[in-house]
Structure formats: structure tokens, C-alpha cells
Amino acid sequence: MDNIDRSLLNEFQQDFPLVARPYAAVAERVGIDADEVMDRLARLSRGGAISRVGAVFRPHAVGGSTLAAMAVPDAELERVAALVSAYPEVNHNYQREHRLNLWFVVTAPSNAAVQAVLADISARTGLVVLDLPLLEHFHIDLGFDLKWS
């Protein structure tokens, strides 16, 4: 990874050019040509550094979502985590260090669809699923400063 890669990763996380040829606009700013910008972004995506070039939507602007938590007995964690991950509506699913040890985000076209997923998981596992929907968000999303130094 060289300085041009670092620029591509850190300096274009917001306000991506909204012009007919955005990669050419990026290219001009970092001093290479548009094809090389696309090649580098493709390589960084393949390597996993970039998820995508795209939009982050305000939660609840379109459809519904919630954060859910469960206290899963250790012996069942593997099985329950796999059951939860198998829902297409579940997009993040993490083990965390707490009695509530499984945390996941459910996103669906409507709040009713979100609630249906939570109810289904609870019914299939026999475990309580805590529903912790967002009430207010405080963070202005400017991307993630990679703090190259």
C-alpha cells in the first residue's frame, strides 16, 4: 500500500465527486489517471480494505432496523449464532463480552418485518431477544479517519 492508496482510502470517504466521470475527478486530485484509480479501487476491494464506493443511509430513512441482543448459553452459542446469521435481514452479528453475548443488527423494508424476524428467532431458540431500536443518533458521519502517520 503506497501513499496514493492511502489517499484513496482516507480522502474520499465523503463528498465523492457527483460528476459524469467521478473516477477521472478523483484521478486529477491524486495525480494518476482514471483507469489507474479504478484498478486501485478494484484491488483494494478484492483485498478487503474497501467495502464499496457508495452511500451510507440514515437509519430508518428507508425501511426499519434495530440492534438486538441475546444471552446465549456458551454451549449453544455456535448454533444460535449460525441460526441468526442465516437470516438475510441480519447484516451484522457479533459475539461480545457480556452476559448478553450475541449482538446483531436487523434491517428490513419495514418495522413489521424487523419485528417478525426477532419473534421468529426467539421462537426458534426459546431465548429472549432484546430489541434496542435507535431513538436518537448523535454522530455526524464523516467517515473513519485512518490516521496514517
Binding site: L8, Q14, I50, V53, A55, V56, R58
Partner: peptide, 30 residues
């Protein structure tokens, strides 16, 4: 159309439906 896509992205950004439009990095992999 291309112009309409750009206009709709600008409009959704202006009202906050789009919070951010750009390169989305993966923390863990970096």
C-alpha cells in the same frame, strides 16, 4: 438518466437520507 441519478443523490444527501457518499472502508482489514 445519468443527470437524474446525480440529482437524486444530491437531493437525498441534502435532506440527510444519505449520510455519507464515498469510499467505505473496512476497519478490521485496515
Amino acid at each position: 438518466s445519468e443527470d437524474a441519478v446525480i440529482a437524486r443523490i444530491k437531493a437525498m444527501s441534502a435532506v440527510g437520507i444519505i449520510r455519507r457518499f464515498g469510499v467505505i472502508v473496512r476497519h478490521h482489514e485496515l
